[in-house]
């Protein structure tokens, strides 16, 4: 594998970025919608994004919150797809359809949401 010259471990500095007030608020919000701990989401973000992207998370989230319908916002799909770039648009649409399907089949909302959360996490981690 080819490596950059002077490459350094950036995890510590990425964590400092995420500790800032607005970043922390955004990460906590998404962690709550996904039903995981803040630390776990931080770990995912540090592994998947570069430093500039992490700095811009609050502004991107502000822009993403204005998009999407009621269901998507409930599942946090606009944030995951548009702001955090953790999922592709197709994956987001698929989770939404499956969630609506379950609601139609008479499953209660809480159970459907927790099933959607598990699906989202699997997609993010894969």
């Amino acid at each position: 594998m080819n490596r950059y010259l002077y490459e350094k471990d950036l995890r510590q500095m990425k964590l400092i970025i995420l500790e800032s007030r607005r970043h922390d608020a955004v990460v906590q919000e998404l962690a709550a919608t996904l039903g995981i701990k803040r630390q776990q989401l931080r770990k995912i973000l540090i592994e998947s994004s570069d430093m500039m992207f992490l700095e811009n998370l609050p502004a991107r989230s502000d822009a993403a919150r204005e998009t999407g319908d009621e269901t998507e916002r409930l599942l946090g799909i606009p944030l995951l797809v548009q702001a955090f770039h953790l999922l592709s648009r197709e994956e987001g649409a698929r989770v939404r359809e499956q969630y609506l399907q379950r609601i139609q089949n008479g499953i209660t909302q809480e159970v459907a949401i927790s099933k959607a959360q598990i699906e989202l996490l699997e997609m993010i981690r894969s």
């Binding site: 800032s20 007030r21 607005r22 500039m52 992207f53 700095e55 811009n56 609050p58 502004a59 991107r60």
Partner: peptide
């Protein structure tokens, strides 16, 4: 007590690089 600053360069550099 609490402060957060969001400067204009953050989104601009991000959109520039990505």
């Amino acid at each position: 007590l609490e402060i957060a600053i969001q400067t204009p360069s953050i989104p601009n550099i991000q959109v520039c690089s990505h």
